[in-house]
Design a protein around this nucleic acid. Sequence first.
DNA 1: GCCGACTCGGGAGTTTCTCCCGAGTAAAAT
DNA 2: ATTTTACTCGGGAGAAACTCCCGAGTCGGC
Lengths: 222, 222
Amino acid sequence: MKDHTTLLIIDDHPLFREGLKAVIQIDRRFEIIAEADDGLTGLKLATELKPDITLTNISMLGIDGIELTRRLKALLPKAKVAILSTHSDLTHISLAMHAGASGYLLKHSSPAKVLEGITAVANNQTFIDKTTSPSISSETLGVKVLEHYESQRAYENLTPREQQVMRGLVEEITRDELAEKLSVTTKTVGNHRSNIMRKLALKREIELIRFAAKIGLIETNP
Amino acid sequence: MKDHTTLLIIDDHPLFREGLKAVIQIDRRFEIIAEADDGLTGLKLATELKPDITLTNISMLGIDGIELTRRLKALLPKAKVAILSTHSDLTHISLAMHAGASGYLLKHSSPAKVLEGITAVANNQTFIDKTTSPSISSETLGVKVLEHYESQRAYENLTPREQQVMRGLVEEITRDELAEKLSVTTKTVGNHRSNIMRKLALKREIELIRFAAKIGLIETNP
DNA sequence: GCCGACTCGGGAGTTTCTCCCGAGTAAAAT
DNA sequence: ATTTTACTCGGGAGAAACTCCCGAGTCGGC
């Protein structure tokens, strides 16, 4: 490892950035060369300044950390990204790793752990903080990624009209209102629904709603 | 205002606490006398040390910041609590204020803004960071609180059996399975459902699911 | 042209839901 | 001790929603 590793910090919480900076600055091997509070400026800075490691949050307005990772790796394949997230679930972890992140660190964990993670990434290792999800193997990661992409793909494989109907179905309007909105009969809406349920292999309404939430079609207030 | 205001910081993210401490320590009027990383120890520290202001996050395992506020105000009505949250929606804000918080600050906002808020609370003012929800009047706050409590109350006004059926309805099991689980006929489950929908003034399945999510009956993956 | 995919909806049957009602039961009130 | 009240269970009848199967019209592509 070089004796000087440059870092870019991307997080939409100024206070959190302060904390991270305070912790990292203790270790003289690291130098924070820039920070950003949203994904777009973060991506711009990363491509311009080419830091050794880009440390980014996931949940941000506009470009989120995962999308940022994806784009940055597309532009600069050798760039190293470490995710710093509140989410310790497999879905987020696997999406991040799949997007090309080298590390997945948790905001809940101790400063020492975070430094450990950054150091590992600087040394070209892959680091996943397993504090809350102890049993992450590359297989389970793969499975989760697959599941998520399959959900997304399954939805995208619906015809345009079916997608439109599905979006209507998971809104709080009645079938009649939806039919009217789409200028078809209630019967047709029902038929589309039937096809959608079959194509997505769902049985009950709540499964449809969960599916819609999973692929970001509807909000689930946090 | 006293020339020295004591603070207790409660947040489950060590790094965030670091950032907050770094920012607050710049202002010599404040002294951080303790910190905690979960609600229960936070509550214990608050009652023992009686800080002038308890600064707490909302989302924490076990006792969350709102529940902590409620309990602390019950024990020490003169204690002042400032919430520091990522959520800028009315529901959270109003629940917090209703629980007895004196301030509602956002993690997204600038260090200066956070200091401003703490200062205001120290001066016995009520401070709500309106950065992302500009139009918060006491009326809208009241309405939201009312809405939330009415939902909760409406659910509690269901009979025990109805609550049981409702919990079953929002799980991913079929009517038949639910009927079998409750040792009644499908017909009875249907009748209960009908009564539930009428009592809660709901029309569609998705409304039922949203309602269940609102009162914390089911998880909505974050 | 003709093929395939998409969209729309009818027919027929099934499941689910609503609304109304009565029976059994257990606790609370008088 | 009897009445009242609330709750639970389910039947009946009809409405609404859903499924599965099918045919017709449309449109872009080979």
